[in-house]
Nucleic acid binder design. Structure first.
Lengths: 348, 348
DNA sequence: GTTAGCACTCCTTAAAAACGAGTGCTAATA
DNA sequence: TATTAGCACTCGTTTTTAAGGAGTGCTAAC
């Protein structure tokens, strides 16, 4: 299947495992002392030489041990790694306290993930693009201001203050409310477009600038707030891995984690890459963001069941403890389901 | 006034200025070549020796030049520094685009500040504690959910979905709305307490659990959302200053900047320290946060004029370009005034 | 009071040496 | 034919040593 016999596999596996632990290039003698491998260092040297030719491992310099190449890690993640079912305790309890402010929950999740894994964690707020409108209400605040409140599936609330150029009477307000609700409730944000809006303008009858103002503002409120919000935690964990924490790299990485815009791109790409709810591992060059070329990124897409989905990511060294990370993620997604799929959740 | 004659002042000033630029301990010979100082290195050595005795400068080790002590910086900031009026361009333009989402504005401001100064910047969202209620509206969303919208001065909007155990009829809703508005409009958040709430419960007449539920939820919504939101930018700028960027220090500092909770403390302390709208400089040990003991922190409190105030901060090395920083801040505060004090601003 | 001169300290940098981990190859062995 | 022991060689890392230099404090002369 990939040109490797049983023994090569075993050795490659041992190399990667050892490297994950130590972060040092691993040599033949070390391997010969591994349990499960009863070969002399010389034999192993030969095999390693082969593995290097095949591109699974590389030598940082002559007379150093070998470290896994991106291709090596890839094989490891895809087939060598066996998924231990393990307890990811703790999370449960923390998540159980019903959070009614989503940003808190997300922030907390990121922190937990970072603490559990010792890598940097990020989590994006769910995008409401596919979410449907549940309820809309305009109310007169004072003579020249109307406040629009829009509730989406999942009890996400959007609001906007609309300045109007002339006072709106009670009747007009009522009419607009009815119109908005009858037309928009049940539609997903993605489906609401300028067409629908202008159609509504026509239906409103009296084609006044007033109505236009209000409808435009509502449309805008629906479209706005679509930016991803991203929470990160544990950025400083990367200092724990010497291969990432030289000045240059650390600066880049932490920079991307702090200024969230690149992460937003990452999220978008991941969403595209991931067919359904599932995990994905980007190793080294595969990473969709330049500054992570020396890292591995593990991502998962979560779905809140009401059309809102977001992304979780772990950023760490290539020699990341993939098993643990993926277990943590799996567990987290389960918790997420539980927390959000019952009880109110008020967006931020 | 502080035991320094004119010449000592001049020398101290020169030492600090030079050190700000170079980051290297400065020696007597270097100073003797400074313009404005026409003394031999030997004389200067004597003066420096005096300055060291007085505690304004210190020697990192024998046979190194001198660097300013915290006390030295303090004198510099308080009296030696003359404030050049300088153009802090660019900001203006960026700020002018009317932002209707405050978090964006704040984030952008932080970034601008970080870019302009080359230090780390933070900015806290305004606290509405002193802000008054302008308008409250409850609306029936569906049989078992009511949504409460509260507008505060400065057009900050809060909302909350309230689950009710039994349907609320139209009349009841109207009554509650009138009650809420008549009782709470004009009050500042700080003034609204349990007393007022229970008084309202009595006034509501029919003392039903339903009314209690709703009023409690409203009260909660008013109190909630009081947490500071803090935006940071340019954390990685600290890598530009060797004295801050050894592994240990960098990790600590960036950690505090990422996990915002310590910054929140900082903000609180600053608010207490600062009498009115103004700037404050914390040098080294003076800093209210442990991880900043090797830094200087310049803060300013801004006031949006409607009872909402927040804090801006710059975190950098002790040899920070105080003049530039303080100028930037001053300018920024002016911009802030302009942006927020006309035009709608919708909280996040 | 100011300055030149000199000895001394101690950090920094460079160069040299010692070290050691690991390889590749060869020849012996099962 | 596959495995292993042995050895020479490479190359990065660490340690040692030496050289260099910046800066001070002190003394004595101006």
């Amino acid at each position: 299947m990939d040109g490797l016999d049983e023994r090569k596999r075993k050795i490659l596996n041992a190399i990667i495992q050892t490297y994950l632990e130590t972060g040092e290039p691993v040599g033949s003698r070390t391997l010969s002392k591994c349990e499960g491998i009863n070969l002399s260092s010389a034999t192993i040297r030969n095999e390693m030489s082969d593995l290097e030719d095949l591109g699974y491992i590389v030598q940082p310099h002559t007379s150093a041990g070998r470290i896994p190449s991106d291709k090596g890690y890839r094989l490891y993640v895809d087939s060598l790694m066996k998924d231990k079912e393990e307890e990811v305790s703790q999370m449960q309890e923390l998540m159980i306290q019903k959070q009614d402010r989503m940003d808190h929950t997300l922030k907390k999740m990121a922190r937990m993930l970072a603490e559990n894994t010792n890598y940097a964690a990020m989590i994006s707020s769910p995008q409401a693009y596919h979410s449907r409108v549940k309820f809309i209400q305009l109310s007169q605040m004072d003579e020249f201001h109307v406040v629009a409140v829009i509730v989406l599936e999942g009890n996400v609330v959007r609001n906007r203050i609309i300045s109007v150029s002339e006072p709106l009477n009670n009747e007009g307000l009522l009419k607009l409310n009815i119109l908005l609700n009858s037309q928009l409730v049940g539609q997903s944000l993605g489906e609401i477009n300028l067409g629908i809006i202008s159609q509504m303008k026509t239906q409103a009858g009296i084609h006044s600038t007033l109505v236009d103002e209000v409808l435009d503002a509502v449309a805008q409120a629906l479209k706005a707030g679509e930016e991803v919000e991203i929470y990160t935690s544990g950025a400083t964990n990367i200092f724990k891995y010497p291969e990432l924490s030289d000045r240059q790299r650390a600066q880049n990485l932490i920079g991307t984690l702090e200024e969230k815009n690149q992460l937003a791109e990452l999220v978008t790409k991941v969403m595209e890459d991931t067919q359904e709810t599932g995990m994905r591992v980007y190793i080294g060059q595969e990473a969709p963001v330049q500054s992570m070329k020396d890292c591995s990124v593990v991502t998962a897409t979560y779905d809140m069941g009401n059309g809102m989905q977001g992304t979780i990511g772990i950023i760490g060294p290539k020699r990341m403890d993939y098993e643990n990370v993926m277990n943590n993620m799996k567990k987290l997604m389960q918790q997420l389901d539980q927390v959000f799929n019952n009880g109110e959740s008020n967006r931020r």
